[in-house]
């Protein structure tokens, strides 16, 4: 009997571990195993509960506190009264049962990924989420926090595997973006951050304004004032840079030059005479080189002129 109980515990443990994998698919087999013996269900729940128990202790004991992975457990004054009141734990655990937010982290293991102008990179995370990094961009990731990224510079398109229990978080400047869906583009743009959503939803600054962006919505977050301006964007245009399609809505030529520089890898400035000009529309860039710049400049009502340190956009009627 003891043996068979031990056997059940072992099987239950294996099921508990297997079913916690996000890609677990053996629900029919689990059903059959549960039906095979009335004791299986409780054994399975007990195994699950053991892991949850500790996760909840972590959430209760150290909210938002970072502890190094190799730390010895902290010495705490142990009060006898605390043990007498251990019943609290069950309650606290119950309150937290639905939260299950991994608030406590491993020792940070940050690393940067950057691209040169004109270069793009695809980063595939462990859970198959993808980040496509545009040229001249810098992204900070952390191995200890697989659901976090910080865009320090440039532009990235996020195609995130959504997990309600563990949303993906993107930070950039003071802004915090929490994914509530799957696909969105983030662009650091001079003194502002642009976020555009093509699938699912993104919540901007959930602790402050908590602006929810649905597909086809775009927000600009001003760095200095923190002001958020929401506008429309065609879903097909979100992350269009991946196929050389750059979309702008009432953008200054300076912004456009930065986007072109990122995509083409060509240093590009704008003549002071036309920096105030604005443009709305889509630029289709075929090749990622200077030829594309010559083709695109007229669409902006400009001409691309070669300078010692790169290229400059000047008014199309300007004297050379």
């Amino acid at each position: 009997m003891t043996n068979s109980n031990e056997h059940i515990r072992q099987e239950a443990l294996e099921w508990a571990l297997a079913t916690q994998e996000t890609d677990f698919a053996g629900w029919a087999a689990l059903t059959e195993w549960l039906e095979a013996d009335a004791r299986h269900g409780a054994a399975y729940d007990e195994a699950l509960a053991a892991g949850n128990w500790m996760a909840e202790l972590v959430a209760t004991a150290a909210p938002a506190q970072v502890r190094a992975a190799n730390d010895q457990p902290l010495a705490q004054p142990r009060r006898n009264t605390a043990w007498r009141r251990r019943g609290y734990i069950a309650m606290a655990a119950a309150l937290l049962a639905v939260l299950l937010i991994p608030v406590w982290q491993m020792r940070p293991q940050p690393y940067d990924i950057s691209t040169r102008p004109g270069e793009t990179r695809t980063i595939v995370l462990d859970d198959d989420s993808r980040i496509l990094l545009n040229g001249n961009s810098r992204l900070a990731l952390d191995r200890a926090r697989p659901r976090f990224a910080r865009l320090d510079d440039g532009e990235a398109m996020f195609e995130i595997r959504h997990d309600e229990a563990d949303p993906f978080v993107v930070e950039s400047g003071d802004a915090r973006l929490v994914d509530a869906g799957t696909a969105f583009n983030v662009m650091r743009n001079g003194a502002a951050l642009d976020v555009a959503v093509s699938e699912g939803a993104v919540i901007v600054n959930p602790d402050r304004e908590a602006v929810r962006l649905q597909p086809g919505r775009k927000a600009r977050i001003d760095d200095a004032s923190g002001r958020i301006t929401v506008s429309q964007v065609a879903v097909a245009e979100v992350g269009g840079w991946r196929s050389g399609q750059l979309s702008f809505a009432d953008a200054s030529l300076t912004e456009i030059a930065a986007a072109l520089e990122r995509t083409l890898g060509t240093p590009l400035t704008v003549s002071p005479a036309i920096v105030h000009r604005r443009f709305s529309g889509v630029l289709q860039v075929q090749d990622r080189d200077e030829k594309a710049l010559l083709a695109v400049a007229p669409v902006l009502g400009t001409r691309a002129v070669k300078r010692p340190n790169g290229w400059e956009l000047v008014a199309s009627d300007a004297q050379p």
């Binding site: 128990w53 004991a61 902290l74």
Partner: peptide
């Protein structure tokens, strides 16, 4: 209290 108790138990675990 909850945090203290949880911390003590967490240490033990």
């Amino acid at each position: 209290d909850r945090m203290l108790i949880a911390r003590a138990m967490l240490d033990q675990a």
